[in-house]
Amino acid sequence: MIRTWPSPTTRWHLAWAGLLLAGAVAMLVDAQVRRAAQQARQPEVQSVVRLLGVADLALSSSSRWLRHPSIAEPGAPFADGPAILDNDPAGAAISPPRASERGRHSERK
């Protein structure tokens, strides 16, 4: 009996496992490269924080406590409307108007 190793099945699995490993390594290397780029732009980020005085990310400007969560007072959601329901679930469930996508996807080099 002639035994071949690795068998075609094992070879297929080794190739697939190799591909997955290569993908994982590529992902980790890419993450490392992007982190280095992030560190390189730290002076610019710090300049902008010095100018603005706050470091909050401009992710949502619908309420002041969503725009600047770090400095909004604890009762800010309720100050917007007594007994108001938390906006977060609404923010998570209701999609933004399509017109706002124009701003989201526009960017310059």
């Binding site: 992902m27 992007r34 401009a58 992710l59 609404a90 998570a92 989201r104 526009s106």
Partner: peptide, 17 residues
């Protein structure tokens, strides 16, 4: 991120190691 009129371009840096 919830509703907003203006969204930034999400150019994020991965924190995965």
């Amino acid at each position: 991120l919830g509703w907003s009129s203006i969204y930034p371009a999400l150019r994020l840096t991965p924190a995965v190691d």
